[in-house]
Structure formats: structure tokens, C-alpha cells
């Protein structure tokens, strides 16, 4: 299942997405949280901390600038460009794998 969280900047999308992601995971779903924002902050709301949040942004930038290669599969993408968040959620700022159309999600 794919859920998109949208709204004007500042209304609380990220907080809502973070509680939703962890809540669904607590209820037994296998959850991936995807931060589509150029200005990525979902990691903070999920509870991974500032350092990990920044690290994931840097990874995405490296990918965009061609310093890193796209992963050939979803699982490998999550492994290389993601981070573990509390309650078993996996966080990523990257949604593309090789040969897919760009854009989120």
C-alpha cells in the first residue's frame, strides 16, 4: 500500500507522516518511510536524530551528482540509502532504482 502525505508547508505533514509510519509498523505492517522533500526533515520527526537525517540527505545528493550509482533493486536501495528508524521503520530519501522514471514516489 502506498500513502502520500500532502499539504501546505508548515501544517504538520512531516509529523503526521512520522506518527503514521511508526504507528502502522507498531501494528505489524512492514513500513518504508520516504522523504520526498528536497529539504528533508522526516528523519527528525521519526526519531533518527540530526546526524542520520543529514547523512541521508548527503547520500541523496551524492546520487544526484553522480558520485554514487543507483541501486539495482528496491532492497539494495533501502540498504545503501536508508536508515533504521524506531519501531522497525526503514527511512529513505531515495526512491529510484536503476532504469525507473525519476520523481517521487
Amino acid at each position: 500500500m502506498k500513502i502520500a502525505v500532502v499539504g501546505k508547508g508548515g501544517v504538520g505533514k512531516t509529523t503526521t507522516a512520522s506518527v503514521l509510519a511508526r504507528g502502522l509498523s507498531q501494528r505489524g505492517c512492514d513500513v518504508v518511510a520516504l522523504d520526498c522533500d528536497t529539504n528533508a526533515n522526516l528523519g527528525l520527526s521519526l526519531g533518527v536524530g540530526l546526524e542520520t537525517t543529514e547523512r541521508l540527505v548527503a547520500l541523496r545528493q551524492a546520487l544526484d551528482e553522480g558520485e554514487e550509482d543507483h541501486a539495482p533493486s528496491w532492497d539494495e536501495m533501502l540498504a545503501r540509502f536508508g536508515a533504521d528508524a524506531p519501531d522497525g521503520v526503514r527511512l529513505t530519501t531515495v526512491n529510484r532504482i536503476e532504469n525507473m522514471d525519476p520523481g517521487c514516489p
Partner: peptide
């Protein structure tokens, strides 16, 4: 079969 929660850019 998992769930993807995507936090979209504002707008």
C-alpha cells in the same frame, strides 16, 4: 506487501 508512507514536498 509492505506499506510506503511518502512525505511529499510542500505544495
Amino acid at each position: 506487501g509492505g506499506v510506503l508512507v511518502a512525505d511529499l514536498e510542500a505544495g
